[in-house]
Amino acid sequence: MDAPTPDPDLFAKAGLIRLLGIQPQQVGDGRAIASFEVGEPHTQHHGFVHAGAVATLADHTAGAAANALLPPGKAVLTVEFKVNLLKPVTGPRVTAEAEVLRAGRQLHVVESRVYAGDPRVLVAVALVTLSVVDTPAVRQ
């Protein structure tokens, strides 16, 4: 059996992901890496990167890692996630590295580690549970 092909639209067609400028660097074999360059849309009132931007990056990158293991006609949707924010994030680049810990028939569990700064520092860790679902028909 051939390995599943990662969905090229996973980042390109997700509106919030485009809005935040999250770009995939690597997707495949139950792993994914994605990042964004920190800009004004990512910040909160004190100038740090907003926790929501960090959580979105961790979650979507986890979904990409899980999605890379699925056969055609299947997708994953987050059902639960927990994010530990370890330190304030200022940038200039924020990167998530996700790895599937368990790929089940109905649920996948993925860990995302988020790094920022130069030198690179671990700033957040997320544990994401995703449900395997049938891909809906695309509306024209």
Rank of each mutant, 00 (worst) to 15 (best):
A96F: 01
E97H: 12
E97G: 10
A98W: 02
A98Q: 06
A98L: 07
E99D: 09
E99A: 13
V100L: 03
V100I: 09
L101N: 07
L101E: 12
L101G: 06
L101A: 06
L101Y: 12
L101P: 05
R102W: 00
R102S: 03
R102I: 00
R102P: 01
A103W: 01
A103H: 07
A103Y: 03
A103F: 00
A103P: 03
A103C: 04
A103S: 10
A103D: 03
G104P: 07
G104A: 14
G104E: 10
R105M: 06
R105S: 14
R105G: 11
R105Y: 00
R105E: 12
R105Q: 08
Q106A: 15
Q106N: 15
Q106C: 08
H108L: 06
H108A: 11
H108F: 06
H108D: 13
V109N: 14
V110F: 00
V110L: 03
E111A: 10
S112C: 00
S112H: 00
S112E: 03
S112D: 04
S112Q: 00
R113T: 00
R113G: 01
R113A: 02
Y115R: 10
Y115G: 04
A116N: 11
A116I: 09
G117A: 02
G117N: 05
D118C: 05
D118S: 14
D118T: 15
D118P: 12
P119R: 14
P119Y: 11
P119G: 15
P119C: 14
P119N: 12
P119W: 12
P119F: 13
R120Q: 15
R120F: 08
R120A: 13
R120V: 13
V121L: 15
V121C: 12
V121A: 15
V121N: 15
V121Y: 05
L122E: 04
V123E: 00
V123H: 00
V123L: 01
V123T: 02
A124H: 04
A124Y: 06
A124I: 10
A124R: 04
A124P: 02
A124T: 06
A124C: 05
V125A: 11
V125I: 15
V125N: 05
V125G: 10
A126N: 07
A126E: 09
A126D: 04
A126T: 07
A126K: 11
L127T: 12
V128C: 06
V128T: 10
V128Y: 04
V128R: 03
V128D: 02
V128I: 02
V128P: 03
V128E: 02
T129V: 07
T129K: 11
T129Y: 05
L130V: 05
L130Y: 03
L130K: 08
L130P: 03
L130F: 01
S131I: 11
S131H: 12
S131G: 09
S131R: 15
S131Y: 13
V132A: 02
V132W: 04
V132M: 03
